[in-house]
Design a binder for these strands. Sequence first.
DNA 1: CGTCGTATTGATCCTCGTCAAAGTTAGTGG
DNA 2: CCACTAACTTTGACGAGGATCAATACGACG
Lengths: 257, 257
Amino acid sequence: MEPVSSPVRSVMQNLDRHIAFTEREHRLISALESEPFAVARGDTLWHPDEVPRHLYSLHRGWACTLHRSEDDAEQVLDLHLPGDVLGLLDFTFTTHYTTAEMLTDGVVRAIPIAGIHRLFQAAPRVAMSLQAATARQQRNITQRLVNVLGNDACSRIAHFALEIHHRLAGTGMEVSNRFTLPLTQRRLSQLLGMSEVHVSRTLSELAERRLVLRQRQSIDILDFEELARIANFRPERFSDTLNPAFVGREPPTSPDL
Amino acid sequence: MEPVSSPVRSVMQNLDRHIAFTEREHRLISALESEPFAVARGDTLWHPDEVPRHLYSLHRGWACTLHRSEDDAEQVLDLHLPGDVLGLLDFTFTTHYTTAEMLTDGVVRAIPIAGIHRLFQAAPRVAMSLQAATARQQRNITQRLVNVLGNDACSRIAHFALEIHHRLAGTGMEVSNRFTLPLTQRRLSQLLGMSEVHVSRTLSELAERRLVLRQRQSIDILDFEELARIANFRPERFSDTLNPAFVGREPPTSPDL
DNA sequence: CGTCGTATTGATCCTCGTCAAAGTTAGTGG
DNA sequence: CCACTAACTTTGACGAGGATCAATACGACG
């Protein structure tokens, strides 16, 4: 049934979304990346308190980062879609704060962190790109915080559905209103700060109101306008483009500095 | 009454906390910074949808970044202490996502974003430092998300109190159990996702249980152990130190590359 | 001294969490 | 291919935590 299908992308295909790299910059990155390798659903890429050693580019499959409290409770911090680079938020620290867990089978590549400081020395524009990619992941989390702080159960799910749709659209894939979402309701509840049971109820309610339909591993957005209204969702707030001041007026497309 | 007293710090005093800069690197940064200027309580440093033009280093005073929904609701995303650099999360985007508002009178310096790409070119270690500082701010927000997702009102406040104490201690200031906290209960409620009224009640409860005392603009932590227990707070999770792999084994102290 | 922002307190209601049981799907091994 | 089990989802009943409304009290400041 092929739930997660995505072209295999290299890290740079994510990183150079905003800054077009030169051949040399591409080579510097590829030199760092490991060969792609397969991971299974439930596999973890890292554990809390470990020393970060790699970034991971997610070529295929979905993952999430989550926090485990000692009282066995888990909070999901972010979802990672095919194409995302994992570990950006942690790699400057001595210890991971989160667990990274595969939500589906997948394929990843590892980039050793030990090589990154050389990137900063040799390829400033790649470094800028890293900074930008990090900030973009942070905005996802900030966005979720806003959602959780300000919205009730119904609006939270509405917001989440739109958010994921928006992120999927941003990867350049098809933008159908129906897409796969490999999340259990438990995970969804941990992501939005509500009980598993209430997620189920709220999804039913949203289905009754003909706003979103959810079955199995997929989700179907029926009424964008109404959803956006009740969720306070403004897509323009997600504008992903780089600050021209940051990249230095116009982003150079061809040159070697 | 002097509620916010802190030595005036320059940006680099924050940035080089982890990577010791060379003289040349120091000069490059100072060349960018504006003269310190005064701001008043309630002043805003930026508004949503504006193009980010400056980072701001907070020399004196407290600030916060917050999100305004169109239905007049506000969610506080982060608090900024003297010494923090503001704008790190937004400056790579074309538009600000948040509002930055001074919680007290203060003194700030501005760093034009247009100069930052030159820093990336000329001073890779400063760029790395920026990356590290950004990630550290993000961890605050992530931390708050965990707090809000997993804890009830009581634990949220407990967690928040410990978090701020920890951050204050990290600035190198005195680590008394009693410190100023220039926050109204309204702001606190917007920060923790609960109603203003319930903040008041919960604070009373915490005072009754002899865990934390709050009056006026200050807060007094009475029982660290118990607070940490009910809040799931593990200070070691906040370890701030740089990943040695990222900075390249041992951080060079003297050299010019 | 009056006014405004802020804090406290009480009463009521409702959203959502919890517990429990049944129903459903997927995965496994014979 | 079927049977069994484990994981996931749905539904119901109940109660608790917290929101809301409203009135009062407490500073701070002009």
